[in-house]
Design a binder for these strands. Sequence first.
RNA 1: GCCGUUGUGGCGGAAUAGGCAGACGCAAGGGACUUAAAAUCCCUCGAUGGCAACAUCGUGCCGGUUCAAGUCCGGCCAACGGCACCA
Length: 801
Amino acid sequence: MINEYNFKKVEAKWQKYWYDNNIFAAKEDPNKEKFYALIEFPYPSGSGLHVGHIRAFSSMEVIARKKRLEGYSVLFPIGYDAFGLPTENYALQTKQHPRVVTDNNIKMFEKQLKSVGYSFDWDRVVDTTDPSYYKWTQWIFIQLFKKGLAYKSKTLVNFCPDCKVVLANEESQGGICDRCGSEVVQKEKEVWFLKIRNYAESLLSGLPTVNFPDRIKTEQENWIGKSNGADVTFKIVSSKKTSPIVVYTTRPDTIYGVTFLVISPEHPILDEFGAEIENLDELKEYQAKAKLKKELERTQLNKDKTGLLLKGLYAVNPITGTTIPVFTADYVMMDYGTGAIMAVPAHDKRDWDFAKAYDLPIIEVIKSSLNVQEEPYVEKDEEGILVNSPLINGLTVPQAISKIIKEMARLHVGYPKTDYKMKDWAFNRQRYWGEPIPIINCPSCGQVPVQENELPLVLPDLKDISPTDDASSPLKKCVDWVNTTCPICGGPATRETDTMPQWAGSSWYFLRYMSPHDSEHLVNPNSYSYWGQVDWYNGGMEHVTRHLIYSRFWNQFLFDIGVVTHKEPYIRRSAQGLILGADGEKMSKSRGNVVNPDDVIKEYGADVLRLFILFIGDYEKPAAWSPDGIKGCQRFANRFWAAQKLITKDNIDTSDLNLDLLIKNVSDDYEAGKFNTAIAYLMTALNTIYSRGAATLHEINTIALLLNPVAPHITSEVFYNLNKSQITDAKYPVFDPAKIIADEIEIPVQIMGKLRARVLVPTGSNEETVMEAVKQTGCLEGKSVRKVIFVKDRIINIIAN
RNA sequence: GCCGUUGUGGCGGAAUAGGCAGACGCAAGGGACUUAAAAUCCCUCGAUGGCAACAUCGUGCCGGUUCAAGUCCGGCCAACGGCACCA
């Protein structure tokens, strides 16, 4: 009756059953508790599904299947984040329309995802490039614009000469293009920004309310980079005039240690003084050099400080009245703080380096054991005591900060200020394959949003989508589309031709899944009130400071305008580790260490792939693919299949396998995201049954149900064989807490902290009983007991000699 | 430089809350079955010594706390990830 396991036949059979019958359709069932499990939707690239995807998706797959068996109404959706450069570049190369490329890739992904047997609700697929979807992406942009949170600004942007796109700071870290690896140059351009900085505080204060791993919270906190300090106004004086200049400092207490002022080479005040700077030619030269310097060079650490003394100018310290020299130097950035600093070389490494290079005085104002002429003392020590600072001498650093800020305020020269490292979100691309920004430029009315009832503003069908060399969008070539009329005055106007960055569509897709077919609402209010927040969201660490922050920002904005009722979109977040090649290196075509899930499924089947990817190691840590390791999971699957033969109706002793404890261990581990140990418990249980040589139907059914979320095909088949009913209609096993404790327990016996014996005693035995058992082992022979440390049901340690 | 994570057998990795280090799996060695191989099943498997019972050592390094340390504390070293002239 039971033959060798034919995974090809069985997997195809169950996939057909699930997908033809919509077994996993999410229903808003008021009688059930809901559970929303979310995975980061994939970018449908031409290379198809990667084993990394399998790891990323399988955790929530297990949770979704488990929750369904437990009686929850589960929303476990899938979609495609399909706008973006790789598709566009591929379309250009192959002379196809990106729409065609995208549709083909999505088809391939769907086929692959189904071959893994994922329990997605295939009726809820969203595609960010579908006008019915990006209609709402554009709608959100318009709301942001109306609230003053979207603005156009002329700034230096990171331009990649290869991709011909303006990049967000996040995409050009270290001056290298995220996508192609070439060096980024600075270019001045009018671009759209979203004021994410307005939400910096809210994004920070939301973190304690969500269940994210600490490393993710820390990374987000560092990214937002809050600092408390003060804006302090110095005066810059030339022979002809005096101008105020504001510096930002986190150490206003060190004001008496200021020995010079440094201004960023891009600072507008330099133009203001212009000819009054005696060495203007040198300045111009220095500015030009600084501009040419690529981001990479400029941020390189341990680089010698360069700068230029501005002759003919001096600055006045607002507290001490002392006059100090003014420099410009490229170690001061225009885009942080105010673009100018008060330099305190005694207590700042960079200022100290600069002071040494330009032979400037160093004045100690915080007492320390260091000689500040030799090296700076940079600790912000709460206990540090101020010296050489008449108004605040003898105070601790926090006391001094508080007192000096009051004094600055009284003199109207300084005020407390909070600053953030996070910059506003550069919200634009000069490429074709993205959401058109729904703004019309009218010569008389200015920037006017497209009427909301005219959304979606559909991307025009363009023949030539190639980018232009001048950093403007290919949409500019589509004159018929660009020329339009102003919605306000009806006069001739032109459309914005920039498109949105790829992060736009992924910033709210979790909401669309709740009611993907609703044409009236971004999210249907009834659906939203049922599904609410995402209960558990899994994704990659690489998205922690971008997608995860952007989507929290948009959700908080939608909360503020009343579209959603939860401030935070995600209750819990986890992050899978990377799957590396068998050589321990990141998988890449050039290394030739890429594992294709299709090949694995062909050879071992989807269940074995799923088992192995979850068994491979700690889910949150990176793991190297092992072509040998997978065999263990294949054996386990086959042994589980063959265990059907061991089922007997005879009365057998099953005391060697505590099913209640197994249920608890496996289920707790699933919920904790410890899939590797959950599978290990199931392997152990099966080993127990094999060494016993017989099993009960109840045992095999229980293992089938516990294993079903990981290996759904084989367990569905076994369960159907044994019970003639669907496992998807069965109930997840529940354990009896009273039965997870064994009757007898083995207690290790230590003598002087060293393991000397083990004794078997009834669970809960007291010290006397255990000691009695210890004496019988004879390991105390000839020894006198001085002290006994006894931990019930755990250990006994005897101090004896 | 700052922040974070991680160092455990030949390998991937286990080890609530300080309580038997090495679960589970791979590889390896031996055996059974087989004409043979594969598959399957059984046994061994941290190091050193010993025929053996057993003993000693052993979780990156040095020190400490404790009856007891992979786990806690102090000081290092290495690898990975994030940020980075952020005032």
